[in-house]
Design a protein around this nucleic acid. Structure first.
Length: 278
DNA sequence: CCTTCTACCTGTCAGC
DNA sequence: TGCTGACAGGTAGAAG
C-alpha cells in the first residue's frame, strides 16, 4: 500500500514522461473514485501542459500551464501504468485488471498513463489558481528542514492522545502512514501506547530523526511494496521492503528476539516489541 | 478546539 | 468447492 516513499517513487517514475508534456486526451471510465470527478475535469486538464510534478504528503501535485493544480492520490491500491505508444503492444505484464483502469492520460509525447485502482480509495481533484486546498493546513514535510525534534516536540506538547495516533495525524507531520509510524517508534524505543505529550526531549529528537531515516531508506530502496503496489514502470513486486516490526506479529524482535506484539489502536494495527519499547 | 469512531471499497486469505 | 468473516488503511466527516 502506498505510503510516502511509494508515492515519491511513483512521482519519480512519472516525472520524466509527464513533465513538460501536454495532455492530449483525458479519458474517465467512471464518474468517481473516492470522490466524484469535477464535472469539467476533462475540460480543465485536456490541452494543458504539465509544468511540474511534485509531492506533498501522499498527494501528487501537477502544476498545469493554466495555473490550476491537479492533485492525485493513490489511496490504498492506486497505481499508475506507463506505456509508450511505441512499446505498448508488449507492456502487458503489470497484471492490473483493466476493469479498474479508471483514468487514462494520453500525452502528446506518446506516453499513455493509466490510473488503475481496484479499491477506489484514490482520487483526483483540481484546485484553481488561488483556491485553497485541503493540504493547506497539514503539518511539515517529514523530510524537509521544516521538520525536526523541536518542531515535533511543539506539535506534541500537551497532547493526550497516544503517540501512535498523533503521528498519524497529518497536522502533526505530513504523510506518515501506519507502516512507517510503527517502524519509527520501534527504532526510537517508544511504545505506541505512550501519551504523545509525555515524550522526553531526547525521545522527540530521536523520533524525528528516525522518521526521516525510515522514510529515506525506503525511498532509496525504491519504495516498499506489500502486495498491491506496482512500480510505475509496470513491474509488480519490483521492490520488497524489510520491516522490523510491521506485519511481523509473533515473530522475534530483531533486537531482543521477544515476540512482536500486535494491538489495535484507532482501528489500526500497531506492531511493537514490548521489551524494547517501554 | 480536541479526540475518537466510522464509512468508504474490493481483493486476499484463513477457517469451516 | 464455496461460503463467511477478518483484514488491509488514508481521508473526511460525524459524534462525543
Amino acid at each position: 500500500m502506498p505510503e510516502l516513499p511509494e508515492v515519491e517513487t511513483v512521482r519519480r517514475g512519472l516525472a520524466p514522461v509527464m513533465e513538460g508534456a501536454v495532455f492530449q486526451t483525458v479519458t474517465l471510465n467512471r464518474p468517481d473514485l473516492r470522490f466524484p470527478f469535477d464535472p469539467d475535469f476533462i475540460g480543465r486538464v485536456q490541452g494543458q501542459r504539465l509544468l511540474r510534478l511534485t509531492r506533498r504528503a501522499k498527494f501528487l501535485q501537477a502544476e498545469l500551464s493554466s495555473g490550476e493544480r491537479l492533485f492525485m492520490h493513490l489511496g490504498m491500491s492506486g497505481r499508475f501504468i506507463i506505456e509508450h505508444a511505441s512499446t505498448a503492444h508488449f507492456v502487458h505484464e503489470h497484471k492490473a485488471d483493466p476493469k479498474h483502469h479508471h483514468v487514462i492520460f494520453g500525452m502528446e509525447n506518446g506516453a499513455v498513463i493509466t490510473f488503475n485502482d481496484p479499491r477506489r480509495f484514490g482520487f483526483m481533484e483540481l484546485a484553481s489558481k488561488n483556491a485553497s486546498y485541503r493540504l493547506d493546513h497539514i503539518g511539515p514535510e517529514p523530510l524537509s528542514n521544516q521538520f525536526n525534534g523541536p518542531v515535533l516536540r511543539e506539535a506534541l506538547r500537551g497532547k493526550k492522545s497516544k503517540i501512535k495516533a498523533a503521528l498519524l495525524d497529518q497536522r502533526v507531520v505530513a504523510g506518515l502512514g501506519n507502516i512507517y509510524v510503527c517502524e519509527a517508534l520501534f527504532r526510537t524505543g517508544v511504545s505506541p501506547r505512550c501519551a504523545a505529550g509525555r515524550l522526553k526531549v531526547a525521545e522527540t529528537d530521536a523520533l524525528a530523526r528516525n522518521i526521516k531515516d525510515v522514510l529515506t531508506e525506503a525511498i532509496e530502496a525504491g519504495g516498499s511494496s506489500l502486495r498491491d503496489f506496482s512500480n510505475t514502470d509496470g513491474k509488480l513486486g519490483y521492490f520488497q521492503h524489510r520491516f522490523d516490526v510491521y506485519g511481523r506479529e509473533g515473530q522475534p524482535c530483531p533486537s531482543c528476539a521477544a515476540p512482536i506484539q500486535r494491538i489495535v489502536q484507532s482501528g489500526r494495527s500497531s506492531f511493537f516489541c514490548k521489551i524494547c519499547q517501554n
